[in-house]
Simulated scan of single mutants.
Amino acid sequence: MQQDKLIEELQAGNQKAFERIYELYSHSTYGIIYSIIKDTSVSEEILQDVFIKIWNNASSYNPDKGRFFTWVLNIARNASIDKIRSKDFKNKKLNLKSDNFVDILESKTNFFGTIDAIGLQKYIDALGATCKSLIDLLFFKGYTQKETAEELQMPLGTVKTKNKVCIDKLRSKVLQ
Results as ranks from 00 to 15, higher is better:
164 K>T: 06
158 T>E: 09
54 I>W: 00
33 I>W: 03
102 V>P: 02
79 A>M: 04
164 K>V: 03
77 R>A: 08
107 S>I: 01
26 S>V: 03
113 G>Q: 06
56 N>Y: 05
48 Q>D: 13
104 I>G: 07
124 I>G: 02
48 Q>W: 09
103 D>P: 00
80 S>R: 03
41 S>P: 06
79 A>L: 02
53 K>Y: 06
151 E>R: 03
5 K>W: 04
75 I>Q: 06
88 D>G: 13
49 D>I: 09
38 K>L: 15
86 S>A: 09
36 I>H: 02
49 D>V: 10
160 K>R: 09
6 L>F: 04
22 Y>C: 03
64 D>Q: 13
23 E>S: 15
61 Y>E: 07
86 S>M: 04
80 S>G: 14
141 K>I: 00
17 A>D: 11
153 Q>S: 15
51 F>E: 07
97 K>S: 10
68 F>S: 13
115 I>G: 02
85 R>N: 13
78 N>F: 04
138 L>D: 15
46 I>V: 14
98 S>I: 02
22 Y>H: 05
80 S>N: 09
159 V>G: 02
121 Q>E: 15
65 K>L: 15
143 Y>Q: 09
93 K>Y: 01
131 C>P: 02
35 S>T: 09
36 I>E: 07
117 A>G: 12
144 T>D: 13
114 T>L: 10
72 V>K: 02
165 V>R: 08
108 K>W: 01
38 K>Y: 13
65 K>D: 15
119 G>D: 12
82 D>F: 06
171 R>Q: 11
55 W>F: 09
101 F>K: 00
76 A>S: 08
5 K>V: 08
164 K>A: 07
172 S>I: 03
82 D>H: 11
163 N>I: 00
151 E>Y: 01
102 V>A: 05
128 G>Q: 12
164 K>F: 01
1 M>W: 00
67 R>M: 13
102 V>C: 03
113 G>I: 01
11 Q>M: 04
147 E>G: 05
154 M>C: 06
128 G>M: 08
31 G>A: 13
32 I>R: 00
62 N>A: 10
136 D>N: 15
67 R>L: 14
112 F>Q: 14
67 R>H: 14
10 L>E: 05
68 F>K: 03
87 K>G: 03
40 T>K: 13
143 Y>I: 10
54 I>K: 04
38 K>C: 14
42 V>W: 01
55 W>R: 12
139 F>P: 05
116 D>G: 11
73 L>Y: 05
38 K>V: 12
74 N>A: 11
37 I>F: 00
15 Q>K: 15
171 R>W: 00
100 N>D: 15
32 I>T: 08
106 E>Q: 14
132 K>G: 13
43 S>K: 02
159 V>F: 02
71 W>I: 03
71 W>G: 07
